[in-house]
């Protein structure tokens, strides 16, 4: 159980997150909201990239300097921009995910563990390829492998679908769904696509101007009124024949503040 109490983060003058209190359990939680709403900032605060005020606790244990294992063992973070310009092979890229337990000599178990992770994601054959030789989709898979290899309990993904085509977006989310379920992970994903959030998330957090606007099951949270209020976009939520819901976007609201 990941618990945030009154978490705030402030760049020099502006609050990007203000008084965020949330609880996350196992499963996929999508974090949605317009640009600048604080999605990445929230993920970065949890990942230890930024240091927020307020409290973050895991199973009642306070995250901070006295709990280094939180970063070395509990969480894995996938940044928005994945490094691609190094003279590093796919194998080494994933090996670096074990950074906290690596010594000068890489053990056979560690090597085997990396191969297993690569195979699980179906990219075992890429092991010897240099990271810059891969397509965007493959690079993203390598980054996921790097995040999974240390077997975290909490997975923090900052817009992992960026630069992926629709086929790869679905494949990536299927993959995230299956590892989350198999390993009982608490997975947080910052997302832009409301339909994907609707379809894949167990819970949805809507951030708006640094505040939590809504938090709950996708069908309760992703509503026409929320989309109007938060995005300034006219939309309706319809049902497919099989009963699944989808968002039907109409366009900007006439009096939208986002309009030029």
């Amino acid at each position: 159980m990941l618990q945030l109490t009154n978490v705030s983060y402030q760049y020099t003058h502006r609050f990007v997150l203000q008084g965020v209190s949330l609880q996350f359990g196992a499963g996929i939680t999508a974090i949605i909201g317009p640009n600048g709403a604080g999605k990445s900032t929230l993920i970065k605060c949890l990942a230890g990239v930024l240091t927020p005020s307020g409290q973050i606790q895991v199973n009642g244990r306070q995250v901070g300097a006295a709990y280094p294992e939180f970063y070395t063992e509990v969480i894995s973070y996938l940044p928005q921009a994945v490094a691609t310009d190094a003279a590093i092979t796919v194998f080494e890229m994933v090996l670096l995910g074990l950074l906290n337990s690596l010594s000068l000599y890489v053990s056979d178990e560690q090597i085997e563990h990396v191969y297993t992770t690569l195979d699980e994601l179906g990219i075992g054959e890429l092991a010897s390829a240099y990271i810059h030789e891969l397509s965007g989709g493959q690079q993203q898979l390598v980054a996921i492998a790097q995040a999974l290899v240390k077997e975290p309990a909490i997975l923090l993904l900052d817009e992992p679908l960026n630069s992926l085509d629709i086929q790869h977006q679905f494949e990536m989310l299927n993959l995230i769904r299956s590892v989350t379920d198999q390993k009982g992970l608490t997975t947080l994903i910052a997302l832009h696509d409301l339909n994907l959030a609707m379809r894949y998330a167990d819970q949805v957090v809507v951030l708006h101007q640094g505040h939590v606007y809504a938090y709950g099951a996708p069908e309760d949270v992703i509503t026409p009124s929320m989309i109007q209020a938060v995005y300034g976009v006219d939309a309706q939520v319809d049902a497919n024949q099989d009963g699944t819901l989808f968002v039907n976007l109409k366009g900007l609201l006439p009096a939208s503040p986002n309009q030029p």
């Binding site: 990942a47 230890g48 990239v49 970063y71 070395t72 490094a83 670096l96």
Partner: peptide, 11 residues
């Protein structure tokens, strides 16, 4: 090489 954010997240 992985970028500051990723490395910081590993403590």
């Amino acid at each position: 090489k992985l970028g500051d954010g990723k490395v910081k997240s590993m403590g």
